[in-house]
Simulated scan of single mutants.
Amino acid sequence: MNPPDVAVSPDLSRPLLVERLDDRVVATLNRPDKRNAIDQDTIDALHELCAELEVNPRILILTGAGGVFASGADIAQLRDRRAADALAGINANAFVRVNELPMPVIAAIDGYALGGGAELAYAADIRIATPDVKLGNPETGLGIIAAAGASWRLKEIVGDARAIELLLTGRTIGADEALAIGLVSALHPADALLDAAHAIADRIARNDPDATIATKRVFRAPREAHPLVDLEAQAPLFESPEKHRRMTEFLERRRRTAE
Rank of each mutant, 00 (worst) to 15 (best):
A124G: 12
A94P: 04
Q77V: 11
E19M: 15
G72S: 04
T215D: 09
V18L: 09
T172L: 15
L78F: 15
A148G: 00
K216I: 08
H226I: 05
H47S: 03
I164R: 14
I145N: 09
D132Y: 06
F69V: 04
R58W: 03
P131C: 10
G89T: 05
P104W: 04
P4E: 05
P4I: 07
A70R: 03
V158M: 05
A150S: 14
E165H: 14
L179C: 06
T140W: 07
E224T: 07
P102I: 04
T130F: 08
A76C: 04
M1Q: 12
R153H: 08
K243M: 15
A37Q: 13
D132K: 13
G149E: 02
E242C: 08
G64R: 01
E100C: 09
R220D: 11
E177T: 10
D80Q: 12
R246W: 10
E252K: 10
S71W: 03
V18T: 11
S9F: 02
N30P: 07
N2G: 12
L168Y: 09
E100G: 03
D160C: 02
G111C: 08
E242G: 04
D41N: 13
G117F: 00
L87E: 13
A70G: 10
L17P: 02
T42C: 15
L251Y: 14
S151P: 00
R20P: 00
T257K: 13
C50K: 00
A175E: 08
A51V: 07
R245W: 03
G174M: 10
S13G: 12
Y112P: 00
G136E: 03
D33L: 12
A205D: 13
V184W: 02
P15Y: 02
A214F: 02
D85N: 13
A148C: 02
L49E: 05
L60W: 05
T28G: 02
G170Y: 04
K216F: 09
A107S: 14
P32K: 10
T257P: 01
F250T: 08
L17T: 03
